[in-house]
Design a protein around this nucleic acid. Structure first.
Lengths: 103, 103
DNA sequence: TAATGAGCTTACTTCAAGGTAAGGGGATGA
DNA sequence: TCATCCCCTTACCTTGAAGTAAGCTCATTA
């Protein structure tokens, strides 16, 4: 429902608004991924931006970061339970975006 | 459906991603508005950004711009028929954003 | 005569997002 | 002993989005 002056549409745009965040999210919706995996799957992202965006998404509670104290260290990122609630929203946004791109 | 490498989530974020665009859209969903109305309803927006974002939204086909050749000129902005398709999407985004803000 | 009002546009400045490149920690393999 | 691997972090620079302020058009009003 849209009923405030500060429309919460801005909230979700802020949460997903980084240059690589939709892509990261999409990858993690498919399956859990390690840092290195994401680097390969998103070829143009820099390490800096990848880790920064991952930290942002973690801070928002959307993804989980699991560190396995192996050597060399292994860090796995996954969609949190809360992050799952984004999936239907992302699908609606995607559907509109897809249609829009056809015009 | 999420099924491309270039996720169209980015599209809608791009379309709505200007600082004032969600707010402008929200106002035009309520009712048609003139430039001056929007300036008053969105107190912190500058004229430059308002006209720029309005032009962006018009170029995307989301809003209509109607000029009445009176003196002084009157320009009315309204949601286009295509823009109406954004309403349900915006509502879903809003609902998620609202819930997210509670955390 | 000058000011007003609506709806902009233009020139200049500021600031944050993002890019580039280098380094670091710490156990392991050669 | 040196390099390697993974997952970052830091310092520095570039770019583009947004803010500020001024001006413009043209008929009406004071």
């Amino acid at each position: 429902m849209i009923h405030q002056l500060e429309c919460p549409v801005e909230t979700i745009i802020h949460v997903l608004g980084g240059k690589w965040k939709p892509m990261i999210l999409w990858q993690l919706i498919q399956s859990n991924k390690r840092f290195n995996d994401l680097e390969k799957l998103i070829p143009d992202v820099s390490q800096k931006m990848l880790s920064q965006h991952l930290r942002d998404l973690e801070r928002e509670g959307i993804i989980n970061r699991t560190v396995y104290p192996t050597v060399p260290p292994k860090v796995e990122y996954s969609l949190s339970e809360y992050g799952q609630t984004l999936i239907p929203v992302a699908e609606v946004m995607c559907a509109w975006g897809e249609n829009h791109n056809k015009r």
